[in-house]
Nucleic acid binder design. Structure first.
Length: 257
DNA sequence: ATGACTGCCTCTGGCAGA
């Protein structure tokens, strides 16, 4: 099965490109981030027309995540990240599909840092660590994927200097990401491409795409069971270069059935 | 170089993104 993640930066603006990507690459499961719409505005019928069933955790204007599955209904397990009742941002959705627990996340950006947004990011990562520790303890076959808004290594960014003050690569952000991995998760893209230089995001500004000024912030983490089934992982880079593209490219992992 | 673009809702300019 092929499990993919795509930060689409607005489902209304991106719908034609998104449907095109689904039909061309046909992932078994597709996790979306930054749908930027409420549940009422989610175009479930458009996905149904091409054979995808969906669940959605939306929010007006900002954030918002969804899980699509080819030919089956994703069984919703958790809507919103537990651990803070005051948190109203729609950034987490968890479902079972085909015997695999799918944890779709849109981790807070955290800029500017230092400040309350960075504090929120770090607190959110700690809540995530608690949630995912339980899944490992339960030995769930599990894939945790989405826009992590963390550049894990210096080799994951086109220019370290250009991003040095950014929340995406602060030591605290990286430490929190590594604490997560050290629980026992496998970073699929890093494992298959340890030298780095593989980007998943290119800014709209300053000709970043044309100059290949990108970085890797969209990640696919595999539980030990799923890591044993890892066949391949990659980035659908060409989709970033199309008309009216998202600023992220889709990422995917293929697991043996 | 305090630059650059895009999407959203709409106080069509201000905010957010990364």
């Amino acid at each position: 099965m092929k499990i993919a993640s795509f930060n689409i930066n607005g489902i209304k603006a991106r719908l034609p490109r998104l449907l095109e990507w689904l039909e061309e690459t046909r992932p078994t499961v597709a996790c979306l981030q930054e749908i930027k719409t409420q549940d009422e505005g989610f175009p479930a019928e458009e996905f149904a027309k091409i054979g995808y069933h969906a669940i959605c955790h939306g929010q007006k204007s900002f954030n918002g995540v969804a899980i699509l599955a080819d030919g089956v209904q994703p069984v919703e397990v958790q809507r919103g990240l537990p651990g803070d009742d005051a948190d109203e941002q729609s950034r987490y959705l968890e479902a079972d599909v085909g015997g695999v627990r799918i944890c779709n996340l849109y981790l807070p950006n955290g800029n500017p840092q230092p400040g309350p947004k960075f504090d929120y990011k770090l607190a959110w990562m700690e809540r995530l660590r608690v949630r995912l520790a339980q899944h490992l303890a339960d030995e769930l076959p599990c894939v945790v994927l989405g826009d992590f808004n963390v550049i894990p290594h210096d080799s994951d960014v086109w220019a370290v200097k250009a991003m040095a003050d950014d929340a995406l690569m602060q030591p605290q952000s990286r430490d929190a990401y590594m604490r997560l991995l050290n629980q026992g998760w496998t970073d699929a893209l890093h494992t298959l491409n340890p030298r780095g230089g593989l980007w998943t995001y290119w800014d709209y500004q300053a000709g970043a795409w044309q100059r290949d000024h990108g970085f890797r912030i969209d990640h696919l983490l595999l539980s030990p069971d799923c890591a044993d089934r890892l066949v391949n992982a990659g980035v659908d880079k060409d989709h970033r270069g199309r008309e009216k593209a998202s600023d992220h490219a889709p990422v995917w992992v293929e697991l043996r059935n």
